[in-house]
């Protein structure tokens, strides 16, 4: 895929060229939205809106990594959504226990053994609950760092905060996540428990 040629064509109004970029990056974009928002429907909406916004504002793309630019766009969409939810909370804690099956790749794609699949699904479920329990500003930084693998500078550019703030928010998010998982240690599969019980 010649990314720069597709971008140039999309800039001149070629929607087919942009759709090739959509097909190439939609999984990454959706994954980020899902990890931040925690539910498939909101993640779908955020992903679709992010692609539409990206196409309409393609002229503002100044080069560099197109994927990073797309991720920044969807992260901003998610951030807006989280702020909206904070003003009008509508999702209860219990709803996280009823996640859609498609959100769990082990249930969708199958796994070597049913027992391992169940353990992995349980862990994934618990981790997603833990991530969703974080405050929005810490959640976005954690997902960008530990799910998307961005470095501090890229996160700072995406969220538009200083690198020092990225470090402190990430540390607080990780510590909260650790405390969350330690408090629910019995829910984790034995091999994933954070504390030695010997």
């Amino acid at each position: 895929m010649d990314e720069s040629r597709l971008i140039a064509a999309a800039r001149s109004g070629n929607l087919d060229a942009f759709n090739e970029l959509v097909l190439a990056y939609q999984d990454r974009v959706y994954n980020l939205a899902y990890r931040i928002l925690g539910d498939p429907a909101s993640a779908e909406d955020a992903t679709q809106e992010a692609f539409i916004s990206a196409y309409q504002h393609l002229s503002t793309f100044r080069g560099g990594s197109f994927l990073s630019w797309l991720l920044r766009t969807v992260a901003n969409r998610c951030y807006d959504e989280l702020r909206r939810r904070k003003r009008r909370p509508a999702v209860s804690w219990e709803s996280f226990g009823e996640m859609d099956e498609e959100a769990n790749p082990f249930l969708v794609n199958g796994h070597p053994t049913p027992e391992e699949a169940a353990q992995e699904a349980e862990l994934t479920h618990l981790l997603q609950m833990a991530i969703t329990s974080l405050p929005p500003d810490q959640r976005i930084v954690l997902v960008l760092s530990d799910v998307e693998g961005m470095d501090y500078a890229a996160i700072a550019e995406t969220v538009r905060i200083p690198v020092g703030t990225v470090k402190s928010r990430l540390a607080r998010a990780r510590a909260r996540l650790r405390d969350f998982l330690q408090a629910r240690g019995e829910l984790l599969p034995r091999k994933y428990r954070l504390e030695n019980e010997d």
Binding site: F51, L123, T124, Y192
Partner: peptide
């Protein structure tokens, strides 16, 4: 803390449930 970070980093990617073609 290290194991927590490793758990998050090992989270399996969630594929897009559908195409988002414009």
């Amino acid at each position: 803390l290290r194991r927590t970070v490793a758990l998050v980093r090992e989270l399996p990617p969630v594929p897009a449930p559908r195409n988002f073609l414009l």
